[in-house]
Design a protein around this nucleic acid. Structure first.
Lengths: 231, 231, 231, 231
DNA sequence: AATGAATGAGGATTCATTCAT
DNA sequence: AATGAATGAATCCTCATTCAT
């Protein structure tokens, strides 16, 4: 009844340990994405990873903790990926195009479970936490949009809503792609989404055309990485 | 001792019975929307409705059945609502604008749980069924888009993808609105979404401007109805 | 992850329900007493009661809750039993004798699990709660002792400690009796414990002798009752 | 790859090894006393001692073994301590007073977990073993009492029960002291308990007075030792 | 000796569903 | 129709113990 709590915090993992943890994260991500959080059993995760049930609790405090960790990890990765893709000196709309393409790539390639973020209702607290993350993302986007509105390239509409639109549209298409409803190469999809977003934002055709005509920025390919499903 | 037991199918409900069933549907809808299907207990539903647990199974075969019923009901309603809002003789883009506004209205007002439809993983079979519904919706939209492409008002891009974009964008904004992230009158939101969609589709500014300038079609107000949360 | 909590509170039980609950309490009491809290499985309790596992949670929030309920119930009963046995107009030492005999009877007959109260460590909070209960009991005893000290029949020593001694000695002998180390009729044991306690308190032999010579007060026999083991 | 593995039996420990083992014993004793055997996890013990879990099984065969070892150790120490305190040539009641004081001292100072001995239900076999130990103790006490009864200084009552009373009363007060309910110097408490016990046994006031007036026997202070909490 | 990793049986709790009244 | 009671399979999590290094 009275315990000192799980030792998962501040544990020093060996190399082997970190690998194991990663395996579990990977398999959990895949399963969560496939079936959702509630429908994924801890038993499924460990079975997929080929280890005993108890080991799960050596690395994670509980099922929710894996989820949190995955969210954190991937959000961080996405940020980095976007940052790498966006040319900070370019005009806002172009940056958005770049960020959008990068995001579609990222989400479609790795982060199968991104679709979950918005829907799964874990406890209220976590939901709030998640939303805060999204909101930061959205706020950044809004700032960019405002600059575009200021220089006349982006149509003068409710920027916060536009920001939500941009951010969510990407997630939405990535989701459709992931669930097999859009059988199409990622590159092509990314280009499409970029067009969709740019057109919905541009204040006039020429701007849109110019931004869409710009060559794609060269980004080094993503390494297959932790907490991600490579389909 | 002879009694017919819960039949659920083709049963003739009394007036009181129909009210009861409706109550259960309403509360179920609210809870599903709040927490998702898996996280909503039958116990929660009956508690919210203030009846005993056994009664649930008098009216529904099982938990999934309520969900199905809600889906069916709402999908049907949405269709009707859209049909009423769309002027079939108008140009495609205008119809889309009208349908979009109507959908936002509908979703924001009633169908709190629409967001669930895409993600909740019940058994595979049901998921497929759900998607089929969405696909029909999307196909209709695609047909409309094709006409717009043909007459040059809609830009010539991948129509299926555009259709997904239109349909999902509406759902997405409705979700954001429902979850409190967009504190804004529904009318205003509907107008915004229509602009967003129209701009993302229009092949040139003038078309978009024209369509958006058209007066809003008068639609009779929706009656507070089944499986819906009236906030 | 998000539930409305167990409905155990404020539930309206039918007669049948109350009987069932009582059965579970009885069996739980017996098992807790035999093996201790930690070593008693919920499975054991329901098996002993001959019902399904889930039913336990219809009546109790969790394992600890049964324990709490038993403690409450029995503490209350003991109080009443003592009160019935003590002649409030008699001299303090005689009242103590009466209370002591009644307690031994009560504990030996019914409350097999009294031994647990002091030792089992559930969560800190509950332990504290338990102690508070004991302390009230002890405080009452101290008050009685003080009156005896005042009138010279009880030796002038640290009353709080004496009170602990009286209260705990009874519990201790009841425990020994219960665990089979004192194979002796309860009546005889009660008389012995009363002698032990009275002698340890009396300020002079005559007082002790007088008090012990007083006839035993007639107390109606205890009905076999809830949350108790009748061995 | 040949290694002898954890032997635990008859192993020759290095100095460092003995220290380690002692640390584990100390922490185990503390935790057992605080929470009981069942509620103390091996993980808690090693965490408290700051070593890895595997090490526990290098020094002990299993959890119960530590408990046994602690019991053995302390029982042995208590015996020695009492023996040292009791003047075998003195009258029985005085010896009891001396033994009582010594026991209170011992228990209050070192053997935090004595309270557990009677209640924890490990396997039946061990419980029996434990009781046997207590019974030997009690038998010795009974012999002493019989001598006192014979020479008229101890009242003629059921000696086995009296013996249990003496032995358990000491344990009981030590427990109360240890758990903070009697904030009082050990010396004072020991004197009180001795009075309590002597009064409960003495056949007449004069005997009690005489025995209690005898000067306290000088006992060398106890070294802080194994399996004990020094508060 | 010492560590972190791994195991898996066991136990508490949940919850959809059925039953008796 | 309606209720409270009952079921039991499914699931999460714990923790003593063993293993590999």
């Amino acid at each position: 009844m009275l315990h000192l709590g799980p030792m998962t915090e501040g544990r020093q993992l060996t190399n082997q340990g970190m690998e194991r943890k990663q395996q579990l994260l990977d398999h959990a991500a895949e399963l969560f994405a496939e079936r959702g959080f509630a429908e994924t059993r801890v038993a499924d995760i460990v079975k997929a990873a080929g280890v005993a049930k108890g080991l799960f609790y050596w690395y994670f405090e509980n099922k929710e903790a894996v989820f949190r960790e995955l969210v954190e990890l991937n959000r961080h990765r996405l940020r980095q990926h976007q940052a790498a893709a966006m040319d900070r000196s370019a005009e806002p709309l172009l940056q958005i195009r770049q960020g959008t393409e990068a995001s579609v790539h990222y989400m479609a390639t790795y982060a199968s479970f991104f679709a979950l973020l918005e829907v799964e209702s874990l406890d209220k607290q976590f939901t709030d936490e998640l939303r805060k993350g999204t909101e930061i993302h959205t706020r950044d986007m809004a700032a960019l949009l405002r600059r575009g509105v200021a220089d006349g390239t982006i149509r003068d509409d409710h920027v916060e809503l536009l920001a939500y639109g941009v951010v969510s549209t990407v997630g939405m298409y990535a989701h459709l792609h992931r669930t097999g409803r859009i059988p199409m190469p990622v590159d092509e999809l990314a280009a499409f989404v970029a067009r969709f977003v740019v057109c919905s934002l541009a204040s006039h055709e020429d701007g849109a055309r110019r931004v869409l005509a710009a060559p794609r920025r060269q980004v080094e390919p993503m390494a297959p990485a932790a907490g991600a499903t490579q389909e």
